[in-house]
Amino acid sequence: MSSKPIDPNAEMSEEREPIAGFATVPIWLIVLLGVLGYWGQLHLDKFGGEFDPRVYGPFASLKEVQKANPDVGVDMVAKGREIYSTSCAPCHQFSGQGLPGQFPPLSGSEWVVGDHPGRIIRIVLDGLQGPIEVKGQQFNNVMVPWRPRPPDVPGLKDDEIAAVLTFVRQEWGNKAPPVKPEDVKAIREKTKERTQQWTANELLKENE
């Protein structure tokens, strides 16, 4: 313990800067990195939400988020709107009001918002003919079917029918639950023998 000010030139140990030894990294430390990396990968797989920006906390994947949404959300409606504008609006009009005496309105129609979406699925799949009362008015016209009949008739696919029906059921003041593609598929399978259009009376007998 010297009592004079330090003379930096005197002490040799002052000059010797530390050197680093050559001991090797223990294998277990590298293995630990590997193990934690593996755990991390599993963690990302399970909790990463597929790196989707729409997947938050409680949901594991986008599918679960979609399932949890009672309203399927903007996607289906937007898609349905597009299909409607090309396939349906020529007759039923963009306003959904139809043409009096010719094409029934969809806005406020009890057929559209009713509890039995199977009826409108059938209408879209195989068309409609004969008299039908909609919102107190009588119509008697023919609607063409949209069932896909490969190879010539492309028609509308299940998700497209579901989209356009979802759209129609939520537009113009309509407030009805969406139609799922699975429902359309079920009915399409069920009625695959059908070759002619439906009539109103037949439809009223269908309760799903």
Partner: peptide
């Protein structure tokens, strides 16, 4: 409750009831 959800279409009638 959305009014549309309570719309029941009567099973055996030719014209659906008023909304």
């Amino acid at each position: 409750v959305s009014p549309a959800l309570t719309n029941a279409v009567a099973p055996a009638s030719t014209s659906p009831p008023k909304q």
